[in-house]
């Protein structure tokens, strides 16, 4: 657990316990005052009872007074012990309950803070890596006294790649920041949206030497168009980067009840169960044999998708493809 949360939980527990103790003490002292005045009254009555009932006995006034006092003191002592025991049990047991209560209260906050921290750390990792590539390449080239024009051209090309990667990442981050502010919903004309996506991606899939198919069964619905569009874009970009040449990608969209289902299914090599579990984690890249043209921004894309889906109170996940081959990314978001 995060240290801030450990201290927060202890502090909250202390406050709860202090409140509980205060209530217990006030309550006990109230009981004690009431009960002890009752004891005093009863014992006085008993003594006077003695006197009237056994008139023949001549009891010394002083003796009876002492007896009365001793009895009352004994009763009060008993009362004090009982109250002390009860309070100890209540406060002691209460402390445990308070601790778990405090932990439960703070848990969702902790989770969201952790997620935020992870995202920031992931994003900064993703921003630093292209910068590090560029910096190292440039510095090494500048130290080279016999740098040829070809070397320089190669360096510029490589740097441009990194600049493009950085551009993509910053765009994604800006989108995310903007969407978080503007989570407004309005009517979306799905066939129109899909058409624009189709136009853009037919080209992209063609370049990547892959097949692309769309199966849309929705017409009009109410949600945030920007977010829906970006979610589809992220999943399709992800498929282009990882399914590989010659594979086929299907975008399936349908509405079931009040939920919009989006699936992006590819016929690539897929992933093992372990990798599947980790794919939304931080900047996990299952692809081990990365080539010189690194696929930057991949991890960030899915990470952003997860955040966006969370903002729409939906779900995102991935399964093995229907025929056991490839991957089936799914998004389910409530719409109207």
């Amino acid at each position: 657990m995060n240290r801030i949360f450990t201290t927060a939980v202890s502090r909250m527990t202390l406050i709860y316990v202090a409140l509980l103790s205060a209530v217990c003490i006030i309550f006990s002292s109230f009981i004690y005052t009431t009960a002890s005045s009752e004891i005093d009254r009863t014992s006085r009555r008993q003594v006077s009872g003695f006197r009237t009932g056994f008139g023949s006995f001549i009891i010394n006034e002083n003796d009876s007074e002492q007896l009365r006092q001793a009895e009352a003191a004994e009763a009060k002592r008993h009362l004090r012990v009982t109250l002390f025991l009860v309070n100890s049990i209540v406060i002691g047991g209460g402390a445990f309950v308070c601790y778990f209560l405090a932990k439960r209260t703070l848990q969702p906050i902790e989770e969201s803070v952790n997620a935020q921290e992870r995202f920031t750390s992931d994003a900064s990792h993703e921003l630093r890596t292209p910068l590090a590539s560029m910096k190292t390449e440039i510095e090494v080239a500048l130290r080279d006294k016999n740098l040829t024009k070809d070397d320089a051209l190669q360096l510029l090309e490589s740097n441009l790649e990194e600049v493009n990667a950085l551009h993509l990442i910053t765009e994604n981050l800006l989108h995310l920041a903007r969407h978080k502010e503007l989570m407004e919903t309005k009517q979306i004309d799905m066939p129109k949206l899909i058409k624009s996506i189709e136009k853009k991606y037919n080209q992209k899939f063609k370049i990547a030497d892959m097949k692309f198919e769309i199966d849309n069964k929705t017409t009009k619905l109410i949600s945030n168009q920007g977010v829906i569009q970006q979610l589809i874009t992220i999943l399709l970009d992800n498929a282009i980067k990882h399914a590989g040449k010659g594979t086929k990608v299907i975008l399936k969209i349908h509405k079931k009840g009040s939920n919009l289902h989006i699936n992006v299914i590819d016929s690539g090599v897929g992933l093992n169960d372990e990798a599947l579990e980790k794919i939304f984690d931080r900047f996990y890249k299952a692809d081990e044999s990365r080539t010189a043209s690194r696929s930057s921004g991949h991890g960030l894309g899915l990470s952003i998708a997860k955040q966006l889906v969370g903002a729409l109170q939906g779900q995102i996940g991935v399964n093995h493809g229907p025929s056991g081959k490839g991957l089936d990314f799914y998004i389910v978001v409530p719409v109207m």
Partner: peptide, 26 residues
Amino acid sequence: EDEYKIANALKRGLSSEGYATDVAYN
């Protein structure tokens, strides 16, 4: 180093400083 570009630039830079450099990408 798994970033090819960083790894290769390091190899180049270190070699030109007289260090015999091997690279592993995973």
